[in-house]
């Protein structure tokens, strides 16, 4: 079997201001780790050839030349609102099967408004929200609220000040998002409860929920807002003073654990996610879980110290990094065989 690994690689030099901009792209270490996992396969998978294909504008030619049997897609794409859809769209055109979700699902999940509309339709809890394009449309918004860019993944664009408590702060943050990110701002009801991220592996009824990761907001520096922000990721978590912010498996009573798992399975299925996904969940003040967002192209940094949550959840379930990557590939192969 010939596997094409399609990726976007971080540029070698990134200034500190741009860390956030390339946050979703992968470093060479991650790309090599995934390539090795695919090459080695699991016991009895036989010899595999892996070709690395960067998702740039020469990708088409490389795909046609290499003719992979399947693509392992970890490319985040370049421009615009539906950027994660670009690579799967091209693979569909070339009739090359690939791991992960289709262009529509990737497009919906990158657009927080669309995601929340689909979830609400299916009565899956998600915080109340509104999208605004300027600082002038801010009547009737109840505070506190969180202000985020509508088309960004993970916690990109979310800073400690994204949690707003006054009209003035709200206006400032909406203007920051609209100006800096060139996109509408999503204003979301702030949930004060615990935060989790949930890794899902497989498809439909066979989707497996890996041990739940808690983002322990109490570990954040005193006085900071209880959110996993840019500062928490890149400023406060230093190698000499690491933030001990993740716990996996999360300490949960069995009832709540099942509730979170069921909610995630439902969200995974109504958004027609395939093979894998990482889902962010937060509890409201009554302890009820809500879906914050879905990441159908989760980050998979191989080094445990990097605190990448999907591999962390897998490790906690006794699944090695290589097994995890191959499990995604095998889900895709099984799914394609069924269709």
């Amino acid at each position: 079997m010939k596997i094409g690994l399609v990726f976007n690689q971080k540029p070698k030099k990134i200034s500190h201001e741009n860390i956030d901009m390339y946050a979703e792209w992968d470093g060479p270490e991650t790309i090599n780790a995934v390539a090795n996992a695919l090459k080695n396969g699991l016991n009895g998978t036989g010899r595999r050839e892996v070709v690395l294909i960067e998702a740039d504008n020469k990708m088409f030619n490389k795909l046609v030349k290499e003719k992979p049997d399947i693509v392992f897609n970890m490319a985040e794409g370049f421009y615009g609102a539906s950027r994660e859809s670009q690579v799967p769209a091209i693979l569909d055109m070339l009739n090359i099967p690939y791991t992960g979700s289709d262009p529509v699902t990737l497009g919906i999940c990158l657009d927080k408004q669309r995601t929340k509309e689909i979830l609400s339709f299916h009565n899956i809890s998600t915080p109340k929200f509104l999208t605004v394009s300027s600082g002038k449309e801010l009547e009737n918004i109840s505070l506190p609220a969180v202000v985020k860019p509508v088309w960004e993944g993970s916690s990109k664009g979310i800073i400690n000040n994204s949690l707003v408590r006054t009209k003035k702060e709200l206006r400032e943050q909406v203007e920051r998002v609209v100006n800096d990110y060139n996109q509408p701002a999503l204003v979301e009801e702030f949930l004060e409860g615990r935060e989790f991220t949930v890794a899902v592996l497989g498809n439909e009824d066979n989707a497996r929920i890996l041990p739940i990761v808690e983002i322990k907001l109490d570990e954040l520096p005193p006085g900071s807002n209880k959110m996993y922000s840019y500062e928490a990721k890149w400023v406060w978590d230093t190698s000499d003073k690491p933030l001990n912010i993740f716990e996996c498996p999360a300490r949960l009573n069995p009832k709540l654990k099942i509730k979170i798992e069921d909610l995630c399975k439902k969200a995974f299925n109504v958004l027609r996610c395939r093979d894998w996904c990482r889902i962010d969940v937060r509890l409201d003040k009554n302890g009820e879980p809500h879906i914050i967002e879905l990441n159908p192209l989760p980050g998979v940094l191989p080094n445990p110290e990097d605190n990448s949550c999907f591999p962390k959840a897998a490790r906690s379930a006794g699944i090695s990094y290589d097994e995890m990557i191959n499990s995604v590939l095998n889900s895709a192969i099984k799914r394609l065989g069924e269709n």
Partner: peptide, 17 residues
């Protein structure tokens, strides 16, 4: 449109999503 976005070319009409 998804491919045109990847090429960063402007086009008429609606986007991919």
């Amino acid at each position: 449109p998804a491919m045109l976005d990847l090429l960063n070319l402007p086009y008429t009409g609606s986007g991919a999503l």
